[in-house]
Design a protein around this nucleic acid. Structure first.
Lengths: 339, 339
DNA sequence: TTGTAAGCGTTATCAA
DNA sequence: TTGATAACGCTTACAA
């Protein structure tokens, strides 16, 4: 349908009166070419609007595509967007192109994106796994030397590089902070299915903090909401318990937003709250939101560095890199229990 | 370990004792194959871990890559992330893959991404142009029938499809809303360089509203900040004028956040504010933020539909589609001037 | 039901 | 300094 065929190297060659190989030489600065020939070739390239066909080139050279494939669960979530931004800056500095796809937190879509990227022969794969996926099928690729790095969550069924937040330690610190301010009943507002790595780790951190303080674990203080609205409802359920929590720990950015909204709607400025992952407007909330901040851009950059070192031939064994979190005290986490 | 050559169709064929063509037939459900042959081929595919080489396939078929290239200025900005999400859902439903790259709002990087995508022979191009770019060089591609759609901002130097927000009308409505509440001095907190399309249009809407109300335009009420912090400072400058505005209009999400932060820091809950583009926590701010909401997911979906119709052979002339905005009244825009 | 030959747009190799 | 030829991995057209 497109009508006009796109000019090929042969078209350029014919225009100039030389062979394709000569054009190739000019374009790749490969081998000797007469100055005049070079100029005539370049002129023809411009005249015809010739653009080299990367697919053909890659095929012939047998090289992988100079692109790195990144899979994230959701483009609209600024956490993953910022991770992707961190990856891209680092990767671009090396002349590689990053191509990003999103899996909608679905194992099947993730698989299909992986297949797409592999079929395009990307030079490396970076994956934020979705909740239910597993990666045994990538073993062959790893053996074949394809660099694969997992971000935010480790691989399942595959030994591979990964870069993750200090989820457990960060949560422990956040919950310990609430305990230090006198809270004994602390609600946990979780996000995704409990099977998800980050959710599990952060929950463990919550339990660690309780244990260390000698506080009992109360199952009824754990609620889950898979998005902001659901998290708001989960928060409401916690507030309506007969023996309600005096403080809340929200396990990710969506859960935090849901909790903030629920508390605001219920006009409960007396309930303490610590969120995992920082929010852009945290400081202007009432009270300002205390958070365990992650470093999404840093995570992306670290993962990119790891990939680049693998591309450079680093064959050492798979490693897990942990990006530290940081408690940012703003007010909501320092409320004391209404005696 | 990086050594192992990736198995080709011929390898699979040899394993089974047939020809590559037969393997091809099995894999593409193309032409008749004996049931037993098919099974043996599939077994060999699994055994060798064969993955078809899309580059080779596309080259032979002469088809473009079943991927659509999307360029956005910034991955970390939820507005663009949500736009990308909208595009992806629509495109995926058609079996196409979306690959996204970010230009960091830079003409040069945008050009290089365009070149990358063209070299990979994507089937269509979707571009959110960066502030200073122009697109004359894409004329040839358009003539050759490559669908190109611009999002959020139209092309420069090229007649092409575009999908944009109702920037001017939306801004006019937002500012008129402030005027209706009695404001006569309304500050404009702009974002990117005034040369940028969205900035220009929204500024025009601001002026339109003033004109219609017979209010004078005061150049000193216009300030600019290129990110959240800069917008906060811009807001401060406006508040410190000798004859300060009683209301503010923020021209995008970053400007809104900056204005919100600046007002909160200055403890100015008396200044009215309307933001262009909605924010996730708008309702819990103090006062809750009135906004002119855009529909980023809808914009992405509309652009995707446009691309798909072009891919289906729609040859009608380039059109500009406008996505309406919606005023969401929450409180900050309904404050009246402190007499 | 399967195979053969040719070609997609490049580049490697060797020869001129 | 340039060209001829083959090859990358796959699919189309035709033949067996």
């Amino acid at each position: 349908m497109g009508g006009m065929r796109r000019p090929t190297m042969t078209d350029v060659a014919r225009e100039v009166g030389v062979t394709a190989k000569t054009v190739s030489r000019v374009l790749n600065d490969d081998g000797p070419v007469a100055v005049e020939t070079r100029e005539r070739v370049m002129a023809a390239v411009r005249k015809l609007g010739y653009q080299p066909n990367l697919m053909a080139r890659n095929m012939r050279v047998g090289a992988r595509d100079a692109a790195i494939g990144l899979i994230i669960p959701e483009m609209g979530n600024p956490f993953f967007g910022t991770v992707a931004g961190g990856v891209e800056s680092a990767v671009r500095a090396r002349g590689l192109t990053l191509i990003v796809g999103s899996s909608s937190e679905t194992a099947a879509l993730e698989q299909s994106l992986i297949a797409t990227f592999l079929a395009r022969r990307v030079s490396a794969l970076m994956i934020v796994p979705s909740a239910t996926s597993e990666h045994r099928r990538l073993r062959g690729e790893r053996v074949a030397g394809l660099p694969i790095v997992f971000l935010d969550r480790p691989a399942v069924g595959l030994t591979a590089d990964s870069v993750v937040s200090a989820n457990r330690e960060g949560s422990r610190a956040g919950v310990a902070h609430l305990i230090a301010y006198g809270h004994r009943r602390i609600g946990f507002v979780g996000d995704l299915p409990a099977s998800l790595y980050t959710r599990r780790e952060r929950f463990q951190g919550y339990r660690d903090a309780l244990d260390r303080a000698g506080l009992p674990f109360d199952r009824s203080l754990v609620e889950t909401g898979h998005d902001q609205d659901a998290a708001a409802q989960a928060t409401m359920r916690l507030l309506e318990l007969s023996d309600p929590p005096t403080a809340l720990f929200a396990a990710n950015n969506l859960a935090s937003m849901g909790a903030v909204v629920a508390l605001a709607r219920a006009r409960r400025t007396d309930v303490a709250l610590v969120g995992f992952d920082d929010l852009p407007l945290a400081e202007v909330l009432d009270p300002p939101l205390t958070v365990v901040a992650q470093d999404p851009a840093g995570m992306g950059a670290a993962a990119a560095e790891l990939v680049l070192s693998r591309l450079d031939g680093d064959r050492s064994k798979a490693r897990r890199q942990v990006v530290p979190t940081r408690l940012i005290v703003r007010g909501s986490g320092e409320l004391t229990p209404a005696s």
